[in-house]
Design a protein around this nucleic acid. Structure first.
Length: 275
DNA sequence: AAGGAGCCCAACCGCCTCTCT
DNA sequence: TAGAGAGGCGGTTGGGCTCCT
């Protein structure tokens, strides 16, 4: 077959997304919904390949994304699902509302793998590690098996954040502009994207780490405004105040709440409004 | 204070699968 | 049925950040 890579085209940009590009992509999808990723860059005026746009949207810009570290129950669920499904991250992600396969994959590789090894469990096979050293580790950590036995509960947790408002990301149909509710949440920003950033706060308060690396986009979230964006009419249904809660478009000027404030105030509210 | 090591995660790459003709 | 195109998926990488010495 020899299909050519989609990003081979000369002139297509690679690397970290800038705020401008994000704005364009968001604006386009809000106006047109998700369709035909191949055509998106052209129609949205982006010098990116469709794949890159899709990735950026699904992994980072989607309004229904949760950010931050996985909760304990989510983690257990991931481990349990991994034992059943292996590295099928998208399938695993389908059981964790608001989480992306990329996020879960990253979390697995950086946290869970280590944890399991420490517990004397082979992260690949989910069986006790064989080597003596590892076995001795295991005997030191009697909680390991029990941690696993706990997973039986986790296993029953399909969509652990059960509630009428939850859903599995893979079940989310093609999002039409009128269906998109922009949350009053830091979901679209790294401001709360990890415990690290939330606990140690300021270090990653820029719009995105990727942005921060790009020359012209090291802009604090609060500084970014998109007043000129043409939001779809339907968006006004939720009111611009709610919309402004999306950090990067929040106005932190006089009399306006900062995104953080909005988030604190509306975090729960928007979740329920959303679904 | 400096700098090296390790961590973390967004983004890329290339293959796979599905759909259409 | 085979080929082509598009989206999806999983593995990997690059670079910024934090921690440690």
């Amino acid at each position: 077959m020899g299909r050519q890579p989609c990003c081979d085209k000369v002139g297509l940009k690679k690397g970290p997304w800038t705020t401008e590009e994000d704005k364009k992509l968001i604006s386009f999808i809000l106006n047109n919904g998700q369709c035909c990723w191949r055509a998106v860059p052209k129609l949205a005026g982006l010098l990116r390949c469709g794949k890159s746009c899709r990735l950026r949207w699904t992994n980072y810009l989607r309004p229904d994304l949760k950010r931050g570290l996985l909760s304990e129950s989510e983690e257990k669920l991931v481990i349990d699902l991994h034992s059943q499904l292996g590295n099928r991250w998208s399938k695993i992600a389908a059981n964790l509302p608001g989480r992306t396969d990329n996020e879960i994959k990253n979390h697995w590789n950086t946290h869970i793998k280590k944890k399991l090894r420490k517990m004397g469990i082979d992260p690949l096979t989910h069986k006790p590690l064989a080597s003596e050293e590892q076995l001795s580790h295991q005997s030191e950590h009697h909680e390991a098996p029990s941690a696993y036995s706990d997973l039986s509960t986790a296993a029953n947790l399909h969509c652990p954040l059960d509630g009428p408002e939850t859903f599995c990301t893979d079940e989310v149909p093609l999002m039409e502009p009128h269906e998109i509710i922009v949350p009053c949440t830091p979901s679209a920003t790294p401001c709360s994207s990890s415990s690290r950033s939330s606990s140690s706060t300021t270090k990653r308060t820029t719009w995105s780490s990727s942005s921060s690396s790009s020359s012209n986009s090291s802009v604090k979230a609060e500084e970014i405004q998109i007043p000129s964006m043409e939001w779809p009419e339907s968006v006004s249904f939720w009111g611009m105040d709610d919309f402004m809660g999306w950090d990067f478009i929040s106005h932190d000027g006089e009399g306006k709440l900062s995104s953080t404030d909005l988030f604190n105030q509306n975090q729960e509210q928007w979740k329920f409004e959303l679904f």
